[in-house]
Simulated scan of single mutants.
Amino acid sequence: MSQPTEQSPERPSGRAVPTSADVARLAGVSRATVSYVLNNTSAVRISEPTRQRVREAAEELGYVPHAAARSLRAGHSRMVLLPTPHVPVGPLYSQFFNDFQWALRRLDYTVVQYGSVGLQAEEAARAWAELRPVAVVSLGEVELTGQGVEILKRSGARAVITLGTQRVEGTHAFVMDQGRVGEVATEHLLETGRRRIGVIVPEEPGLAMFSGPRLDGARRAAEAAGATVVPLPLRYEEESADALAARWRELGLDGVFAYNDEYAMLLMRSLQDAGISVPEETAVIGADDLLLGRLLRPRLSTVRIDMVVGRELAELVDRAVREPDAPPVSRDLLDSRVVRRESS
């Protein structure tokens, strides 16, 4: 039995892995044409019938381009690394990242999610750098440092983009002002005459990066008005919400900012079950403006948050990859405004 070669390695089953040369022979074209078609090269004009023959030949043979070879030709990979969120980010953020990933795919990037639970700073940067991504987009759960950014760039990353609560040197930074979310929610409750306001602080791991600044923002607004804010730890469980509702009148609260719409809906149901009327006894406001909140009775007041559009962020990644020496972009996100409904 002959030994497999680099040009035609063998599969574990013994069948040879198809190569671009095999596709070229079957389609009746050159290997260069196969490369142009399957790598979506726009610089060379190739007729649509030829493109179709190449695609059909590749599909028949089960051939896919080799990512490493493609990276060598381009001088960089097309991989965008997204550290996987290890916190329950909610529907608003999930939709954003779905849109972002689809937009990257349309720009011909390969999106790879990386489980980064337990990794810290430079340790995370080194782990990401091992995959040689052309760009890294971090949610801010790992506190990237300037040194970590330098590690990524030395490994070939042309762009490092952060979405977090602070700017990081050397990155394109989208800063999310979480404090403003709590501030506008509390200002709204104060405007409705509430003076002793509860603020839900989720007990789920990893949410402190959001809930801490939102609590601080609520405190700023209350302090300016001479009102009181009471932090309320809560697990995203019916039992936890019921236990909190059972001592609600003891706490003497007349309003609550419930962190987001999901926690608001959980708490509001428990309050109603405990005989506490909303909004007469307690006004309730969430955040994220989820559709489900509008279907409740009373309809849920909320803070609508305007995030960066996924397509816009994908286009920034593409520009940064093509122009790695361009000055970093820095923008503030989360323009927050109250949508008042019946719950407050």
Rank of each mutant, 00 (worst) to 15 (best):
M307V: 14
I161G: 00
A287W: 10
V112L: 15
T110I: 15
E204M: 09
G252V: 11
P18Y: 13
R297D: 10
D335E: 12
Q120S: 14
Q272Y: 05
A283D: 01
V284N: 00
H172G: 01
T186K: 00
R70P: 07
A16W: 06
R220A: 11
E143P: 02
G212P: 00
V308M: 12
L333D: 01
S277D: 07
P279S: 12
E315T: 12
I285R: 01
D332E: 12
A225F: 02
V149S: 03
T145A: 02
E237K: 12
Y109Q: 12
R214K: 13
R70C: 04
A274W: 03
A16M: 02
E48N: 12
Y236H: 15
Q147L: 14
D325I: 03
Q272F: 09
P213S: 15
D108R: 13
F97M: 13
G90I: 08
G252Q: 14
E122S: 11
P231T: 02
V137D: 06
A221E: 00
L163A: 05
F174W: 04
L163E: 09
V168I: 15
Y63S: 05
R132F: 03
G198A: 11
R337W: 11
V136Q: 05
P133A: 00
S13I: 10
L38A: 13
G75H: 04
S116G: 10
V309E: 13
Q7E: 14
V201M: 06
A74R: 13
R319D: 14
A185Y: 01
M307S: 09
L234F: 08
S116A: 15
G193P: 05
G156K: 07
G293Y: 12
L38C: 08
R53N: 04
A258P: 02
L131H: 14
Y263Q: 09
G90A: 14
F96M: 13
M1D: 14
R70N: 10
F100S: 09
N40G: 14
P85N: 06
V44R: 11
R311L: 08
T302D: 07
T282P: 00
E342Y: 01
S240I: 05
G170K: 05
R180G: 00
S94K: 11
A127T: 13
V256H: 05
V184T: 14
H86W: 09
V184E: 04
S344E: 01
S71A: 11
F174T: 01
R294E: 10
P83L: 06
V201S: 01
G198S: 09
T165Y: 01
Y93H: 15
G90Y: 02
V112K: 04
T19H: 01
